[in-house]
């Protein structure tokens, strides 16, 4: 089978993982993280390739992809914004932050922006309640309470364009 999503560098990382952990199933979650980092999405073809490579049933990998929130089948944009909607961020009015981000990026919750740059997701607690409302842009964490003006937000978002 020829691989499109399992590129050389990802295969190398999976091999590293295989050397570390005794079970081949233990490479699934790390491999999916690598696929997600590189392709910003886990499409069914990637799951089939991984299943072929690790010799693990597709159903097992699919079971993992659907169980863990970070691995959803969705056509994601270049940048993934995750806004926390849990209690401390709710009390700190994440809705107003969401509106600002929506306006600035053109994306909506569960929908990418038309320029393909942004995708917004509302997530449960991201363990940053001291800086509520907290949000992640890809892997970077930000303090929503510090965003007072449009410029503050623009300063952050401009790094990812």
């Amino acid at each position: 089978m020829k691989y499109k999503y399992l590129t050389e560098d990802i295969i190398q990382k999976i091999e590293e993982c295989r050397g570390r952990f005794p079970l081949k199933e233990q490479c699934i979650i790390p491999a999916l993280h690598h696929i997600l980092d590189k392709h910003r999405d886990i499409v069914p073809e990637a799951v089939i390739e991984l299943s072929d490579y690790l010799k693990v049933p597709v159903s097992h990998i699919e079971g993992i992809v659907t169980f863990y929130d970070m691995f959803r089948h969705r056509k994601n944009a270049k940048n993934h914004i995750r806004i926390c909607r849990n209690l401390p961020c709710h009390l700190a009015n994440f809705h107003s932050l969401l509106e600002k981000i929506k306006e600035k990026t053109g994306a909506d919750v569960g929908r990418s922006s038309s320029d393909g740059l942004w995708y917004i997701e509302l997530v449960e607690c991201i363990g940053s309640c001291g800086i509520a409302p907290a949000f992640l842009v890809n892997d970077d964490l930000y303090d929503g309470s510090k965003i007072k003006t449009e410029e503050d937000l623009e300063k952050i978002l401009s790094k990812y364009r």
Binding site: R20, Q26, I28, I29, I64, Y68, M70, F71
Partner: peptide
């Protein structure tokens, strides 16, 4: 010591679910 990254499931903080997840299964 080896580090293993979860993938966004609160239930994996429950110790037996954590072990399942650590073995590469649904939590």
């Amino acid at each position: 010591i080896k580090v293993y990254r979860g993938a966004g499931a609160y239930i994996c903080g429950e110790e037996t679910a954590l072990l399942e997840s650590l073995e590469g299964k649904r939590g």
